[in-house]
């Protein structure tokens, strides 16, 4: 319940309207009587099992996106959840930023992604020509640095965790320890290349959470 309250607070702060159901029955009742855009379903619910609730909802023809939260992460559990009609799957413990990213993806909210140019402040990234300009000057980036910047820009204004980077930019090599260092080095180099001396970095480190590219807001 601590988790549910924290998630509600966080989501409300992000501008979502949130109702928390404490039990499986309550959740099922709410999901069948009110209209929602998305359900975040914890599999370990008192009363009715999360997967049962999901199956019951799908049987009634409810097609709204369902994001499952679970502490079990074997392949079988994953398959069971997705077979049961879930749209996405997040294993506890997870970063709140990652939950936000998944919710954005499922509800198709957030910044549009299918544009050629991604821009922030005076930094422009051309996804077709694979060029980056800062203040009108081209910046030479390696392929990895380009990918990294692109990913950050696609999630601009949103926190990106190391897990998200490892998963989406590095194709999720399973060994987290070495990869964290690799990500840090690439980020440091990217900063060096795109930042202008004496100005605050475009890429901010949110300690303990991750990174975010955002326009400087006081």
């Amino acid at each position: 319940m601590k988790l549910a309250q924290a998630l509600r607070q966080g989501l409300e702060r992000e501008g979502y309207e949130v109702t928390v159901a404490a039990t499986g029955e309550e959740g099922y009742f709410l999901a069948t009587t009110a209209r929602y855009e998305l359900i975040v379903l914890d599999l370990m619910l008192p009363g009715r099992d999360g997967l049962e609730v999901l199956a019951a909802l799908r049987e009634r023809g409810q097609h709204l996106p369902v994001l499952i939260l679970t502490a079990r992460d074997t392949v079988e559990d994953r398959v069971r959840g997705l077979d049961g009609g879930a749209d996405d799957y997040l294993v506890k413990p997870f970063a709140f930023a990652e939950l936000l990213a998944r919710i954005r993806a499922l509800t198709r909210r957030g910044p549009a992604t299918d544009t050629q140019h991604l821009q922030i402040a005076d930094l422009v990234l051309d996804r077709v020509k694979r060029q980056v300009m800062r203040d009108g000057t081209p910046v030479a980036l390696t392929a990895k640095e380009f990918q990294l910047l692109e990913y950050l820009l696609l999630n601009r204004g949103q926190v990106v965790t190391r897990e998200m980077l490892a998963h989406d930019v590095w194709d999720g090599v399973a060994c987290s320890g070495p990869l964290d260092n690799v990500i840090d080095v690439h980020l440091a180099r990217l900063r060096q290349k795109i930042d202008i001396a004496d100005e605050p970095s475009l890429i901010r480190t949110i300690r303990g959470v991750g990174f975010m590219i955002a326009e400087d807001t006081p």
Partner: peptide, 18 residues
């Protein structure tokens, strides 16, 4: 303090995963 707590939590998660 919250920042350190989050950092430690991330470390814990990683260790747990391993």
């Amino acid at each position: 303090a919250l920042t350190s707590i989050l950092e430690e939590a991330a470390r814990l998660s990683q260790l747990l995963e391993t």
